[in-house]
């Protein structure tokens, strides 16, 4: 089975985010980008599938600062092929344009299974995974927390709110949006990553120029106003409990 895992670099939300002078985009000048957490799980799930079967794993990402580190880390975890997609996408972009452009490269790789993170914190026009599925004409299942490959299909555990899990059978080729791998992304020692830097080769493939015309126009970005409805309840335990009971009665839950 030929598995491709895609990753995206996103702003580290621990950092203070700023809006640029245009008022319609994030100020990227000093923004630290990290791998999208869900994409890290998608890579882990791909490696787990490889360890259980004869799968070949390719990991792809856009040529953005920090991408090499992610690719070498993926290689040190067991990815067979690491690919950097080069092109002019440093400016404003959207997921539709990127998915459409990446779909062409994916067709060349002829994957049986494409794994992506189920979402990213910068998604404003849908997630990459289902958009790719639409462009490639493949089925898509998201919010997946476990995958098994069986006889030309996969069985995926799809999560719903409230702890409900559905096991979905999906014919291949398919795209899955990973919410959580079956185990946390594995730790790789820095020495092993350095070793991968010497032994692994990052392939470069040029990406067609993204067509940005399909996205919506952003009128403005702004930070949410700080709420003023928070009430700090002070006093002894009895006083706090009495106040809580009063609040619950006011809003009708008691």
């Amino acid at each position: 089975m030929n598995i491709v895992a895609l990753f995206k670099l996103v702003p580290d939300l621990v950092e203070e985010l700023e809006i640029d002078q245009s008022g319609t985009a994030l100020n990227m000048d000093f923004l630290r980008l990290i791998i999208n957490e869900f994409d890290d799980h998608a890579i882990e799930q791909a490696i787990l599938l490889k360890e259980r079967s004869e799968a070949r794993v390719s990991v792809l990402g856009l040529d953005i600062e920090g991408a090499d580190d992610v690719l070498y880390t993926a290689a040190s975890k067991g990815a067979d092929q690491v690919i950097k997609l080069t092109g002019d996408f440093q400016g404003k972009s959207n997921n539709h344009a990127m998915a459409c452009a990446v779909a062409s490269t994916l067709k060349e790789l002829q994957p049986d299974l494409i794994l992506t993170g189920v979402q990213a914190n910068t998604d404003l026009d849908g997630s990459i995974g289902p958009l790719l599925a639409g462009y490639l004409g493949m089925p898509y299942v998201g919010y997946v927390s476990g995958v098994n490959a069986v006889d030309g299909k996969v069985v995926a555990r799809k999560e719903y709110p409230g702890g409900l899990v559905a096991e979905m059978e999906i014919k291949l080729p398919a795209v899955l949006g990973i919410q959580a791998a079956e185990q946390p992304p594995r730790y790789v020692a820095v020495t092993k990553v350095r070793q991968a830097m010497k032994t692994a080769t990052i392939e470069e493939r040029s990406l067609a120029e993204p067509d940005l015309s399909g996205g919506s126009t952003i009128r403005r970005m702004f930070k949410p106003e700080a709420g003023t409805r928070a009430e700090m309840i002070e006093g002894s335990a009895d006083e706090v409990a009495a106040r809580l009971v009063g609040i619950f009665k006011e809003i009708g839950v008691l």
Partner: peptide, 22 residues
């Protein structure tokens, strides 16, 4: 959600319709 997000993006690219999320 785990239902709506599975459908909306695929339809968006399949039908070539814009999508605004969240």
């Amino acid at each position: 959600s785990s239902i709506g997000a599975d459908v909306s993006s695929v339809l968006s690219s399949h039908l070539n319709l814009p999508l605004i999320s969240s």
